[in-house]
Computed example of a mutant assay.
Amino acid sequence: MTSAFETRLKDNAARTEALLTDLLSDAPRDAEIVRPAGLLSAMRHGVLNGGKRLRPFLVIESAALLGGDAEAALRVAAALECVHCYSLVHDDLPAMDDDDLRRGQPTVHKAFDEATAILAGDSLLTYAFDIIAAPATGLGPEAKLELVLALSRAAGVGGMAGGQALDLAAEIASPDEAGIVTLQAMKTGALIRFACEAGAIIARASVEDRKRLSAYGETIGLAFQLADDLLDLTADAQTMGKATGKDAARGKGTLVALNGQAWAERRLEQLVGQAEALLAPFGDKAAILIETARFVADRKS
């Protein structure tokens, strides 16, 4: 990674964190009655805990590539992070992946309780669409409608939530390679694809550019999950900030388990090359997103 990329990643993460802090403040918004203190604390615990903010970064940088409004992109980025964090809060529950640690701190159901964790996740998911629809997000009605539809599809039964259902089923009957690819494209890839496509929607880009950014998102989504599976095999819990080796312990199939570490490393190189090829028509303007593909493939946590 270049220092310019690292600075951009940190700066965008800080901007996203600052906006999320404001969005999760105590003061009720118009038409809200009250924000219960315990529930709001749990939401903050699940969201304001650091992290690279990769998905928001992709929204912001995809919009910037195509000339989209920066402030609107930041708000859509925050909305997407609410959806992502809701999914983590719920995935960590005992009925799902049953994790006690997330980003180096107790998961929400451990820091509070299971009922509060469920409600925190519910509230974060709902709030995401509030953020997009709110007047403060300076986009026209058509753009907002497209964003709501695309995010709903990415997060719902045919996307992330459906992918989690397939992931739970995989603990009972291991899927074949095609099944694993489908599961991962839904559970992990769908929100990453949305992050990149959202930039094109915000910028009111051409259909061709929207498809190109969506394909780039799909490609780095595959790379993200493949790198994650490698880390689950090779990294320790302290580095990752969460438990590792759980997939193997549960007998859950991954592409790394099926094909081996060397294959996975070669496949990651191929995916980075595909991402670069998709962005080639944008020339030097795509340098940050090209570096992002390499960062996703090479990450160590």
Results as ranks from 00 to 15, higher is better:
residue 4 A to W: 01
residue 19 L to M: 14
residue 84 H to N: 12
residue 26 D to G: 07
residue 69 D to F: 12
residue 50 G to I: 07
residue 90 H to K: 09
residue 19 L to Q: 11
residue 63 A to M: 10
residue 70 A to F: 01
residue 95 A to W: 02
residue 101 L to E: 03
residue 64 A to L: 10
residue 64 A to Q: 07
residue 50 G to Y: 10
residue 40 L to P: 10
residue 69 D to A: 13
residue 45 H to N: 11
residue 61 E to Y: 00
residue 101 L to Q: 02
residue 57 F to Y: 14
residue 48 L to F: 12
residue 111 A to K: 05
residue 63 A to D: 01
residue 55 R to A: 08
residue 12 N to R: 15
residue 95 A to G: 09
residue 24 L to S: 02
residue 67 G to E: 02
residue 104 G to A: 06
residue 55 R to I: 01
residue 9 L to D: 04
residue 20 L to Q: 08
residue 52 K to I: 09
residue 9 L to I: 01
residue 74 L to Q: 09
residue 73 A to L: 05
residue 25 S to A: 15
residue 82 C to D: 07
residue 81 E to G: 10
residue 78 A to R: 04
residue 36 P to A: 13
residue 81 E to T: 15
residue 11 D to G: 15
residue 23 L to F: 00
residue 45 H to W: 11
residue 57 F to R: 12
residue 47 V to S: 09
residue 38 G to V: 09
residue 41 S to R: 13
residue 28 P to Q: 06
residue 110 K to S: 07
residue 39 L to P: 08
residue 41 S to F: 01
residue 55 R to E: 00
residue 86 Y to D: 03
residue 14 A to T: 15
residue 27 A to L: 05
residue 74 L to H: 04
residue 53 R to M: 09
residue 73 A to P: 01
residue 69 D to R: 15
residue 108 V to L: 02
residue 121 G to Q: 07
residue 121 G to W: 06
residue 64 A to C: 02
residue 15 R to S: 13
residue 122 D to Y: 05
residue 120 A to H: 11
residue 19 L to V: 05
residue 111 A to T: 06
residue 115 A to S: 14
residue 56 P to D: 09
residue 70 A to S: 09
residue 121 G to R: 05
residue 44 R to L: 12
residue 121 G to N: 07
residue 37 A to V: 08
residue 80 L to W: 03
residue 67 G to Q: 06
residue 47 V to H: 08
residue 12 N to P: 13
residue 33 I to M: 09
residue 39 L to Q: 07
residue 24 L to Q: 01
